[in-house]
């Protein structure tokens, strides 16, 4: 009797285990399949981007929605991040008696790292989520279907302009963020604490390299722009056409694109700045 119960229990445990494995495998293959779908979607999007450039008005309109409307949060955040950098940087530098180097520290941190990364994270949550929600809702309310029915390709007409608007906006926003941050560092460092103004600017000019620092920062922000907007348009286009579907897709956009930014930043930094030292 007891033996039989043990056997039965064993069998359920085994079945559960098998089921678990099966689910794991199924989940993994579904994820990989979706990744492939996202890649095909991206290729199709690039191939059908003609309209977004031929009728650039469409893209300009989206630049307004993704870029211009994100400016407030970018400018305010940039200012605060720069001011904090000014405080923290001064605190550390003055211990070594090199507080004039504050300008260099602020500028390099912003241009190389914080500008692209923080602006990218803000962009993902402000503009990326909006893009996903908009495209997802257009799908849920059959607007995408109606467009296809009118023989207009929604990827060319709806998705591509939003994608390129994001790719164009992101580096500009990152540049604004950095500029605002440097201004914030200046306010705190020079105006509040009293670091020498001439040293602040001249050291910055002397030490920040155009190609090594500025251009690398720009490259980063372009890459982040592509990643965030790609994720945003794909999640929107692939969202199940229901309220839960769209809200889930919006969350995924923010989570995935934030993770993508941080991971890509590590890879890009490793490529850009360690390569230089090894030479």
């Amino acid at each position: 009797m007891a033996e039989r119960t043990v056997l039965a229990r064993l069998r359920t445990v085994l079945a559960g285990l098998l089921q678990g494995f099966e689910r794991l495998g199924h989940g993994a293959s579904a994820k990989i399949w979706r990744l492939g779908y996202a890649a095909r979607f991206f290729a199709y999007l690039l191939l059908h981007s003609g309209t977004a450039f031929r009728r650039f008005g469409l893209t300009i309109r989206e630049i307004y929605f993704t870029g211009v409307l994100s400016m407030t949060i970018i400018l305010v955040s940039g200012l605060f991040v720069g001011m904090v950098l000014g405080l923290q940087g001064y605190d550390t530098l003055q211990r070594y008696g090199s507080s004039e180097a504050l300008g260099v520290l602020v500028a390099l941190s912003l241009v190389r790292e914080l500008g692209p990364v923080v602006a990218g994270l803000l962009f993902a949550s402000r503009a990326g989520s909006a893009i996903t929600a908009e495209i997802g809702l257009m799908k849920a309310t059959e607007q995408i279907a109606a467009m296809e029915m009118m023989a207009v390709d929604p990827i060319a007409r709806v998705v591509a302009p939003r994608f390129w608007a994001g790719v164009i906006s992101m580096p500009l926003l990152a540049a604004l963020f950095s500029a605002m941050g440097i201004f914030g560092g200046y306010l705190v460092g020079v105006q509040l604490i009293g670091v020498d103004e001439g040293a602040f600017w001249s050291q910055m000019q002397a030490s920040v390299d155009w190609r090594e620092d500025v251009m690398n920062g720009v490259v980063k922000s372009v890459v982040f722009g592509v990643a965030v907007t790609w994720i945003a348009v794909f999640e929107g286009y692939d969202a199940p056409p229901t309220a839960e579907g769209v809200s889930g897709a919006t969350t995924r956009t923010v989570v995935f694109s934030s993770l993508a930014i941080l991971a890509l930043d590590f890879v890009l930094t490793a490529l850009m700045f360690t390569g230089g030292n090894a030479k």
Binding site: E134, L137, M138, T141, E142, Q143, A145, A146, M147, E148, M149, M150, A151, V152, D153
Partner: peptide
């Protein structure tokens, strides 16, 4: 797409483009 240009469809729930005015909706095609 070529075939659909010769067809029109009224959707069960309208499916108007919510980011355009009524005028632009009708002018779309």
């Amino acid at each position: 797409f070529a075939l659909r240009r010769k067809m029109g469809m009224l959707f069960q729930f309208g499916a108007l483009f919510t980011d355009m005015t009524v005028f632009d909706n009708v002018a779309f095609q």
